[in-house]
Design a protein around this nucleic acid. Structure first.
Lengths: 216, 216
DNA sequence: GTCATCATGTAAGCCGTTACATGATTGC
DNA sequence: GCAATCATGTAACGGCTTACATGATGAC
């Protein structure tokens, strides 16, 4: 899971550990403040496995384009970037390898009925642009099916004569949240289908694309 | 966390492990299918700590009043209960002790800025009827403050020019979900305040109750 | 008599955490 | 020079999971 996140970020650009942590927190918002005790060993593991390699510190040119940061933080960062003559910090910049990219794609697509789910799904969706349109659609539909199952059990719970106000409120709220999630997914799925449909009719050579709009 | 859940269930009635698991799943809906590898060691720990004691299997009379179970399951259960001449199954029924009750109340109220939170809060709310009105209100307000902080960072994330459609959609959905959670909490808080206000004016002897409506 | 379900437990391992230790760079 | 932030790492432990092992009871 952490591996997927790391590889996903490195798939876009070289980064060092500290910066990976920052992006996970500020940009993706999953893993609120992943601990270093998790992150660094994970990087070492990935390096040992040949999925990433440590390269001589080189960025600092690419990094200022990081996007708009929080304001004060952006100021600090800009100041450091403009004054930055010392590219040679003590930091260790990692680059993803071909093997790492392959691993990333495997992890991203992997149906591994994982326990966590909400976070795993969020993470995958965050990197969904690396997936083929069909794989993306499958990801969304798998998640939807999961939520539909949950909705059923949420409703069963609400139906049960549990009496207690707080438990009931909890159950009702959970039901609503799940419904909300599902309708969000429906919008995403719809949008993906439109994109597929727009591409498919003009390229009838691809059989798989042809079949899909027919089943719906 | 698991301890809190177990103690909370036992605070209401004697139960054996398997049944605790069932209730956590079917009634509370938190801990979807807690594993036995977690549950039984937890019970042993609690027993060793003197928070619960194993009593001779005795229920089976109280249990049928469990509430409406799933239908088929209820039939099976009823059948077993009516035919039940053998109270002496291989099961181990646990009862909470006074020390256990004290521990339960400590855990329930404990502000321990825990990492998990959503689940921890859900669990506490499920047992909120064991809390004093003020403690209950504090629980809700603490959670609300947490969510407000999250909302701020969610919005910061949305504001950032992240470009990617999926990351953006994720961030927007998270924002909405958090808003929804907050407004749910607001309704709960409002209802708690009303309950407090209804009780307070008629009992002006309690200073803390008096002060509260004044600050709002 | 065999299969599903109820019931309890142990062992190994995964995935993360906190706490600790260290050091470079920069701002004031 | 001193504090804050950036930066990397190790060690110990926590809490939950899966997989494994066992056995009683009841349904068909």
């Amino acid at each position: 899971m952490l591996d997927l996140a790391i590889l996903g970020l490195l798939a876009e650009q070289e980064l060092h550990g500290y910066e990976i942590r920052r992006r996970l927190r500020d940009e993706l918002g999953l893993f609120v403040n992943i601990s270093f005790g998790s992150l660094y060993p994970a990087l070492s593991r990935l390096e040992a496995a040949g999925a990433v390699t440590a390269v001589a510190a080189a960025p600092d040119v690419a990094i200022p384009a990081t996007g708009s940061l929080g304001g004060e933080r952006a100021v600090l960062r800009a100041r450091r970037a403009t004054s930055g003559r010392s590219t040679k910090r003590s930091r260790k910049v990692y680059r993803i390898t071909d093997a790492g990219l392959a691993l990333f794609e495997r992890l991203l697509e992997d149906d591994g009925t994982s326990t966590d789910d909400a976070r795993t799904f969020g993470l995958r969706l965050a990197f969904a642009h690396h997936l083929a349109p069909q794989a993306r659609l499958r990801l969304l539909e798998r998640r939807r099916a999961q939520l539909v199952r949950r909705l059923a059990s949420d409703r069963a719970r609400v139906a049960g004569t549990t009496l207690d106000v707080y438990v009931r409120s909890l159950a009702e709220h959970s039901t609503e949240a799940t419904e909300h999630d599902i309708s969000w997914l429906d919008r995403l799925i719809e949008s993906e289908r439109r994109a597929l449909a727009a591409a498919a009719p003009t390229t009838p050579s691809d059989h798989r694309l042809d079949r899909h709009p027919a089943t719906h």
